[in-house]
Simulated assay, not measured.
Amino acid sequence: MSYFIVADSACDLPEERLAQLNVGRCPLTANFQDGTVLEDSFREMDATAFFDGMRSGVVSTTSQVNTAVFYDMFHKALQTHDHVLYIGFSSGLSGTYQGAILARNTLEEDDPGLAGRVIAIDTKSASLGVGLLVLEACRMRDQGASITEVAEHIENQKNHINQFFTVEDLVYLKRGGRISAMKAAVGQLLNIKPILCVNPEGKLIPIGKAKGRKKSIQALMDHFRENYDPAYGKDFAISHGDCLEEARQLANLIKSEYDMNEPVIHPVGMVIGSHSGPGTLALFFPGKPREDFNPAL
Rank of each mutant, 00 (worst) to 15 (best):
2 S>K: 15
2 S>G: 05
5 I>S: 03
12 D>P: 02
14 P>I: 09
15 E>S: 11
16 E>W: 06
17 R>I: 08
19 A>S: 04
21 L>R: 02
22 N>W: 13
23 V>M: 06
23 V>K: 05
29 T>V: 09
29 T>S: 10
31 N>L: 05
33 Q>G: 03
34 D>W: 15
36 T>F: 03
42 F>R: 00
43 R>L: 02
44 E>K: 04
44 E>R: 03
47 A>I: 09
48 T>F: 06
59 V>A: 00
65 V>R: 11
66 N>M: 05
68 A>L: 07
71 Y>F: 15
71 Y>L: 12
73 M>N: 01
79 Q>S: 02
79 Q>W: 09
80 T>Y: 09
83 H>L: 09
84 V>Y: 07
94 S>V: 04
97 Y>G: 11
102 L>I: 11
107 L>S: 06
108 E>D: 02
111 D>C: 10
115 A>D: 08
118 V>N: 06
121 I>L: 12
121 I>W: 10
125 S>D: 10
126 A>Q: 14
131 G>W: 00
135 L>F: 03
136 E>K: 00
136 E>W: 05
136 E>C: 01
138 C>W: 03
145 A>W: 09
146 S>G: 10
152 E>M: 14
154 I>A: 00
154 I>S: 15
156 N>C: 14
158 K>M: 13
161 I>K: 05
161 I>D: 04
164 F>A: 02
167 V>G: 07
171 V>P: 01
172 Y>E: 09
173 L>D: 02
175 R>T: 12
179 I>T: 06
183 K>R: 03
183 K>D: 03
184 A>G: 02
202 G>T: 07
203 K>F: 01
207 I>F: 00
212 G>W: 15
216 S>D: 12
216 S>L: 08
222 D>Q: 06
230 P>D: 14
234 K>L: 11
237 A>N: 14
239 S>H: 06
239 S>D: 12
240 H>N: 03
242 D>F: 11
245 E>T: 11
246 E>H: 04
251 A>M: 10
254 I>E: 10
255 K>S: 12
255 K>A: 11
256 S>F: 11
256 S>Q: 13
258 Y>F: 15
263 P>W: 14
264 V>D: 02
264 V>F: 05
270 M>D: 00
271 V>F: 01
271 V>K: 08
272 I>E: 02
275 H>P: 05
278 P>Q: 09
281 L>P: 01
282 A>E: 01
283 L>W: 07
285 F>C: 14
288 K>F: 08
288 K>Y: 12
291 E>V: 02
292 D>M: 11
293 F>Q: 09
296 A>S: 12
296 A>K: 11
297 L>I: 07
